[in-house]
Amino acid sequence: MSFLPASGPARRLALMALAVCVLSVAAAVVAFVEGSFVGIVWVLMAGISSNMAWFYVRRAQQQSQQQSRHDAQRAGAAG
């Protein structure tokens, strides 16, 4: 089973949020190495974007489960 949802808008949003998370972690590391406390903002952005990625992954999984249940109910009613 894949971590990411099937192709569609939820997958693209999850990948973009994951990319923002990785880039903000890298920016936080660079900021802290240079002695800047601006890294705190980057850490907060990493937290928000990781939560967004999980949200879109879980939402897509729940939608696919609901769709498969709906398809199973329709197949049971037809047969």
Rank of each mutant, 00 (worst) to 15 (best):
A77Y: 08
L4F: 12
V22S: 08
R12E: 12
V22Q: 14
Q66L: 15
A10G: 02
I40Q: 02
V33N: 08
G76D: 00
H70R: 14
A6V: 09
S36A: 14
P9D: 12
Q67Y: 05
I48D: 01
F37R: 07
V57S: 03
M1K: 12
A78V: 12
Q62H: 11
R69W: 03
V41C: 00
L18M: 13
A78I: 13
M45R: 11
A17K: 01
F3R: 07
A17S: 15
C21Y: 13
A19D: 14
R59D: 06
L4E: 12
M45C: 04
A26R: 14
A19K: 11
A28H: 02
M16H: 10
A26Y: 08
A27H: 05
A75V: 03
S68Y: 01
A53Y: 02
P9M: 05
L4A: 11
G8D: 04
L13C: 13
F37H: 12
A6P: 02
L18F: 10
R69A: 10
L23N: 13
Q65L: 13
V29N: 01
S64V: 15
Q63P: 00
G47Q: 03
A19I: 02
D71N: 11
G47F: 05
S68G: 01
Q65M: 15
V30M: 10
G8V: 09
A46Q: 02
M16W: 07
S7C: 04
A31R: 02
R69M: 11
G79S: 12
V38T: 13
R58T: 11
N51Q: 11
V43C: 03
V30C: 05
V29E: 07
S50C: 12
P5R: 13
A19H: 06
A19Q: 11
V43M: 03
M1N: 09
S7P: 08
A10M: 03
E34P: 03
A60Q: 06
M1T: 15
W42C: 07
R58S: 03
I40V: 15
A6R: 15
Q67H: 06
S7V: 14
S49K: 01
S49I: 05
V20I: 07
P9N: 04
Q63A: 14
R74Y: 00
S68M: 09
V57G: 03
V22R: 14
F3L: 15
R69Q: 15
L13A: 14
V57M: 09
Q61M: 11
R69P: 01
I40K: 00
W54N: 14
Q66N: 10
L15D: 07
V33T: 11
A60R: 01
L4D: 10
W54S: 15
M16C: 00
Q66K: 07
V25Y: 06
V22K: 13
A72S: 08
M1V: 10
R11C: 03
P5T: 11
A46G: 00
V22E: 12
L44A: 13
